[in-house]
Simulated assay, not measured.
Amino acid sequence: MSTSSYADGAAYVRGRFVPIAEATIPVTDWGFTRSDVVYDVVHVVKNGFFRLDDHLDRFEHSMQQRRIRPPEDRAAIEAILHRCVALSGLSDAYVAMVASRGRPRVAGSRRPADCDNHLIAYALPWIDVIPKDVQERGAHIWLASTPRVPDASVDPTVKNYQWSDLTSGLLEAHDEGFDTAVLFDAQGFLTEGPGFNVFIVKDGKVSTPDRGSLHGITRKSVLELCAELGIEAAVEPIPGTDIEHADEVFLATTAGGVMPASRIGGRILGNDRPGPISLKLKQAYWARHDEGWHRTPVRPLEAAE
């Protein structure tokens, strides 16, 4: 099959590389019926993965925590990701690795250990959680009434497809004409949003929640950049009222980088545009990409064979 067949994306499913439109799983897969699956996403910019080792580390941690063990080892998974990108021909891509529980070998079994775990991977054209034009004017963020699922029930450091609470927050936001939402836990502390970590800026200090949140790779990058730029930063409890009184708010994710906000609920931040510290971190983040920060070049197709 020619590489042109992969122009919309390339996938690895059940041991085969296929165009993204042909990537399917059985409807009886527990990854589908029970959201019994873990995943991770790494981005490719200008033919280079960003922090690939960090994403693979987190993916391995998630699989270990959920006792999902596909047959492919780490080296094989990395090679598969390279080949998916190479097949797609994309220089900027959204690249996912997924480990699903699979289907029971024993008909009717309810035992997770009876399932054949398997790996799915795919590369798609670049995706922004917040579209670039919205990032320019600053995202409008709704403060969701839906509480974040408790950490004791679903470990937020294990990247998973349990999105019911996050999707409910999105539905609220869109009903109110906002771009996206952030959620709070049952005690009223800030957590995260659908697919991103959240940061607040107050009196020059950058803070991000210590609970209810994925240990994001972009979050990690932001904290490193703050240290480099001499900006005070902390991972700490953030009461819900703090975001309402913040000087600036920005979001961080693999699918979009550092994404400033300009409105929080009914409050307009600054001059209804992204704030100076948010913009400084956004510019530094992408400038470091251009410098090759944590870059792993995508192996050409012949090398990924």
Rank of each mutant, 00 (worst) to 15 (best):
S100A: 14
P147G: 00
V201M: 09
I120M: 13
D272M: 00
V38P: 09
P156Q: 08
S2W: 04
A181Y: 03
V249A: 06
W142Q: 04
E236A: 13
R69V: 14
G240Q: 09
A10K: 02
P156R: 04
G212Q: 11
V13Y: 02
R267K: 15
R211P: 08
S207P: 00
S213T: 15
E302S: 14
I243Y: 07
K159S: 07
W30D: 10
S278E: 07
C115I: 05
L214W: 09
A144H: 03
G230N: 11
R14Y: 10
T28W: 10
R211G: 11
R137P: 03
P125K: 06
V149G: 05
A75W: 02
Y161D: 00
D40V: 11
D165C: 11
G177M: 08
V85W: 10
E172F: 05
D57G: 10
V201K: 04
V44R: 06
D272E: 13
A173S: 11
G266L: 11
H289I: 07
R288T: 05
R14P: 01
G270N: 13
K132G: 02
P26V: 04
T253Y: 02
V201F: 08
V235D: 02
R273G: 11
F196R: 08
A11W: 01
A255M: 13
D133Y: 04
H174M: 09
Y12P: 07
A233S: 15
G15L: 09
D29G: 05
E72C: 08
T254E: 13
Q65L: 12
T218P: 12
E232S: 10
D53W: 01
A234H: 14
K202W: 04
T24N: 08
S91A: 14
T180I: 03
E228C: 04
T218D: 04
L279Q: 14
V27C: 09
D114S: 10
F50G: 03
C84T: 06
I141H: 06
D247M: 01
L124V: 11
G193D: 12
G193Y: 07
G48F: 00
P150S: 09
A233Y: 00
L170A: 03
H43K: 15
V85S: 08
A23L: 07
S221Q: 02
G216V: 03
L171E: 13
V95K: 04
L143F: 12
L301D: 04
A123N: 07
A21K: 14
A233C: 13
G169E: 07
E22A: 15
L87I: 11
E228W: 01
S168Y: 01
K202P: 00
Q135C: 12
G15T: 07
P125D: 10
G240I: 03
H61G: 00
D290P: 02
L229E: 15
D128V: 03
K280M: 14
E172P: 02
Y12A: 05
V37L: 12
D165T: 09
K159Q: 07
A227Q: 13
A75T: 15
F49M: 02
V95Y: 03
V222I: 14
G169D: 03
S109N: 05
P194F: 13
K132L: 11
G195H: 05
S88C: 01
